[in-house]
């Protein structure tokens, strides 16, 4: 059974800009998939559709057989965890603990259960010791990991991360790869960071102009120079996926 299925999704902003034009994709349970594409391809718009913050003008999204609708939107929001690009947007409460507790409290868990979930989520990202700290006192890497904990605390079965490596130093980036590859949750990773995707995601999807233009093994997509060039994707200088043990 597929975990996430998006079929024929179309969306325009009120000013008439068409951002998604009949986009379809499917992800299986336990997969880690990279979502690549130039600026303006519609990646962030797609992400905001996956748990119903934006609603498509046509098409359907379903998660493990449940179709997104007004009736199911709360359930879908619990099961799909969005990690926003800027952790300062994601972490809006005065303390780390209160922030991680925000989701479980809204989804109606008992106070005792909320506490256990916060502890469990923060421990799984290795940052339980930060519980009483204020988010703005954390380093970039710590913020990113706490942001991930905020969605793990609600038992999300699909993790959607928007540009998770932005503003991370090399060590923070390496720790993030280790953390994400250790999580059993299905993941969709939106990014411009091609080496990061190459390391983390066996499969990638390239989006451009509101549609999926390529879908396949990450190593193969990244070795296709023409494909990358056509969609304004560039590997860092000296990075050659064919030279690195293929995944």
């Amino acid at each position: 059974m597929t975990q996430l299925s998006v079929s024929d999704l179309s969306f325009s902003y009120p000013d008439g800009t068409e951002v998604l034009k009949g986009l379809s994709l499917a992800i299986d349970p336990g997969e880690r998939v990279g979502l690549l594409g130039p600026n303006g391809a519609g990646k962030t718009t797609l992400v905001l559709h996956l748990n119903g913050i934006l609603r498509a003008s046509s098409g359907a999204i379903s998660l493990g057989g449940t179709t997104l609708s007004d009736q199911t939107v709360r359930e879908i929001r619990r099961r799909v965890g969005l990690v926003f690009q800027d952790p300062d947007d994601q972490l809006f409460m005065p303390t780390v603990f209160a922030d991680v507790a925000f989701g479980p409290a809204n989804f109606g868990f008992e106070p005792g259960e909320v506490e256990q979930r916060v502890k469990g989520a923060l421990e799984s990202v290795g940052e339980w010791h930060l519980a009483d700290r204020a988010p703005h006192h954390l380093s970039g890497g710590e913020r990113r990991k706490v942001a991930i904990a905020t969605v793990l605390a609600s038992d999300s079965e699909l993790l959607v991360l928007d540009e998770p490596t932005s503003n991370l130093d090399p060590a923070g980036r390496r720790e993030l790869v280790a953390l994400l590859s250790s999580l059993p949750t299905t993941q969709l990773v939106v990014t411009h960071d091609l080496p990061f995707v190459f390391e983390l995601c066996p499969r990638s999807i390239i989006m451009d102009g509101g549609r999926v233009v390529a879908d396949g093994r990450t190593g193969e997509l990244l070795s296709d120079r023409q494909l990358l060039a056509a969609h304004r994707l560039e590997l860092p200088f000296g990075f050659d996926p064919t030279n690195i043990a293929s995944r």
Binding site: L48, N51, I53, R74, R77, R78, G81, L82, F84, D89, Q90, F92, F102, G103, N106, F107, T150, V151, S154
Partner: peptide
């Protein structure tokens, strides 16, 4: 949006 995403 981040609040909505977490069930606000």
């Amino acid at each position: 949006q981040a609040m909505l995403a977490r069930g606000y």
